[in-house]
Design a protein around this nucleic acid. Structure first.
Length: 139
DNA sequence: GCCAACGTTGGC
DNA sequence: GCCAACGTTGGC
């Protein structure tokens, strides 16, 4: 089991929209970055991830689960790009802001801080626990 | 809306 | 294969 973080601009695809999809899930398409794609290829069914709102909010608002392995991105004919499907699991009761992450010394090496522009990031188990704690997420 | 950081592209 | 130019992302 591994942990990840998915970034989205709420205007394009928000947590509300993700939740509305329910169990069906939604392809995380439109990624045009090799590192982000490689991360998705490494994902397994059942992996957990944070859902982060960039630009507007700048906070971790939800928890998602990978429900389909990497497959060709339906939004392009370019076979280089792939995506996984994710489904909403639950809200983060107290959204964890970027400022809060930056202010937490134990999270100083988190990709959210060090690789700001990467849209699909790995999260370590330790980081996962700390953020869940900060967000008031039930274990 | 601005601008810095970074990834990608394309000419050589 | 290098590197400059360009486009995009995302925090502020």
């Amino acid at each position: 089991m591994q942990y990840w973080l998915f970034k989205s601009e709420p205007f394009k695809w928000s947590w509300e929209m993700q939740k509305a999809k329910g169990e069906e899930g939604e392809p995380w398409d439109g990624v045009r970055n090799y590192q982000a794609r490689n991360n998705m290829r490494a994902m397994q069914i059942g992996d957990q991830g944070f859902f982060y709102h960039s630009n507007e909010g700048k906070e971790i608002v939800g928890i998602v689960e990978v429900c389909a392995l990497a497959h060709p991105d339906p939004t392009t004919d370019d076979e280089r790009w792939e995506c996984v499907d994710i489904k909403a699991v639950k809200d983060v009761p107290k959204p964890v802001t970027l400022a809060a992450v930056k202010a937490e010394p134990r999270l100083e090496n988190m990709a959210l801080v060090t690789s700001m522009r990467l849209s699909v990031q790995p999260v370590t188990e330790e980081e996962w626990k700390i953020v869940c704690e900060m967000g008031g997420v039930d274990p």
